[in-house]
C-alpha cells in the first residue's frame, strides 16, 4: 500500500511540476466560462435555471475535451517510461506491474479531478452568483451530477490510454492510436450509428437495440446521464421528447461507464504483465 501511494504521489507531483494541471485547469475554466456566458445569454427571463443551461453547455464541451486530455495524459504512461529507461529501473524495485498501472491511474485521475472541479466549479459558481435566480434555487443537483460523471468520463479514457500505452513499443504509435480512439468514441461511433438509422426505412431496426447500441459508447452514456438529469436540461438539449422508456436508468448509465473504466484497466494490466522489456 505504501508503494502504491509512493507511485501515486510521484504521478501527481509530475503533473504539478510540469505545469500540466495549471494549464489544463486554466483552459477548462476559460472554456467553461465562455460557454456558460454564451449559453446563458439567450435565456433572458425564462423559467429555466441558468445553471441548467451551463450543465448542458459544459457536458457538450466535456464530451470532446475530457477524453482528449485524459488520453493525452495516459498514452505516455508506460511507453514513455519504457523509452526513457525508467520503466526497467522501476520494475527492478519491489513493485508489481499492476501497482505501476494503478499508481498511474489514481495519480492521473487525481490531476484530472482537480482540473474538472476547479474549471467547472468556477464556471458554475460564476453563473449561479451572477444569475437572477437565488443561489439555492439553482439546479445544483444537475451540476453535481455533471462534475461526478465528468470525473468518471476522465477515468474511462485514462484506462483506454493505458491499454494503448502498455501495448505498443513506441510513443509515436501510442499517440496516433490515442487520437484514433478519441475519434472513434467521440465522432465516428455516433456517425456510424446515425448512418445505420438513416439507411433504415424506419421499421427494420428495433429502437431498443439502437438505444443500447448507442449507450454502449461511454461518451453517449455520459451525454444521456447529463442531458436528461432534470426537466430543464432535457428541455434545453432537445431530450424532452424522449419518452420514459427511451431513457436509461441512472444506474445502468453509471454501470456502463464504470465497466468502461474497469475492463480496459484490467486489460492494460494484463497486457503490461506480458510486456517484454
Amino acid at each position: 500500500m505504501n508503494r502504491l501511494w509512493t507511485l501515486v504521489c510521484k504521478e501527481a507531483r509530475d503533473g504539478f511540476r510540469n505545469r500540466w494541471v495549471i494549464m489544463i485547469t486554466l483552459v477548462m475554466t476559460a472554456l467553461a466560462l465562455i460557454l456558460s456566458f454564451l449559453g446563458s445569454a439567450p435565456t433572458g427571463t425564462t423559467s429555466v435555471s441558468p445553471l441548467a443551461v451551463t450543465v448542458v453547455s459544459l457536458s457538450s464541451l466535456s464530451i470532446f475535451f475530457i477524453p482528449l486530455i485524459a488520453l493525452l495524459l495516459a498514452y505516455d504512461g508506460v511507453v514513455g517510461e519504457a523509452e526513457r529507461g525508467t520503466l526497467t529501473l522501476l520494475l527492478t524495485h519491489p513493485v508489481s506491474r499492476p501497482e505501476v498501472i494503478l499508481g498511474k491511474f489514481i495519480g492521473h485521475l487525481f490531476l484530472l479531478t482537480i482540473a474538472i472541479m476547479v474549471g467547472y466549479g468556477v464556471a458554475g459558481l460564476t453563473i449561479a452568483l451572477t444569475g437572477e435566480a437565488g443561489f439555492a434555487d439553482q439546479e445544483w443537483d444537475s451540476f453535481r451530477r455533471l462534475l461526478l460523471s465528468s470525473v468518471l468520463l476522465a477515468a474511462v479514457f485514462l484506462s483506454l490510454g493505458y491499454v494503448i500505452s502498455a501495448w505498443v513499443s513506441e510513443r509515436g504509435t501510442a499517440a496516433a492510436m490515442a487520437i484514433g480512439i478519441w475519434l472513434l468514441f467521440v465522432l465516428l461511433y455516433d456517425m456510424g450509428l446515425l448512418a445505420l438509422l438513416a439507411s433504415d426505412s424506419g421499421n427494420g431496426i428495433n429502437g431498443e437495440l439502437v438505444k443500447w447500441l448507442m449507450l454502449i459508447n461511454p461518451t453517449d452514456s455520459y451525454r444521456m446521464f447529463n442531458l436528461t438529469s432534470s426537466s430543464d436540461t432535457a428541455l434545453l438539449s432537445g431530450m424532452a421528447g424522449l419518452s420514459a422508456d427511451h431513457r436509461a436508468s441512472d444506474a445502468s448509465l453509471v454501470l456502463i461507464m464504470l465497466s468502461w473504466v474497469i475492463m480496459p484497466l484490467a486489460a492494460a494490466i494484463a497486457i503490461f504483465k506480458r510486456r517484454q522489456l
Binding site: R3, R84, T86, P94
Partner: peptide
C-alpha cells in the same frame, strides 16, 4: 541495487526527489 545501462531520470525532479522516490519504493 541496479544501475541500468542508460537511464534518463526525469528532468523536472531534483536529485533528492529522485532518490527519495526510489528509496520509498525499496522501503
Amino acid at each position: 541495487g541496479f544501475l541500468p545501462e542508460q537511464v534518463l531520470f526525469q528532468n523536472n525532479m531534483t536529485g533528492r526527489e529522485t532518490l527519495d522516490f526510489y528509496a520509498r519504493l525499496k522501503g
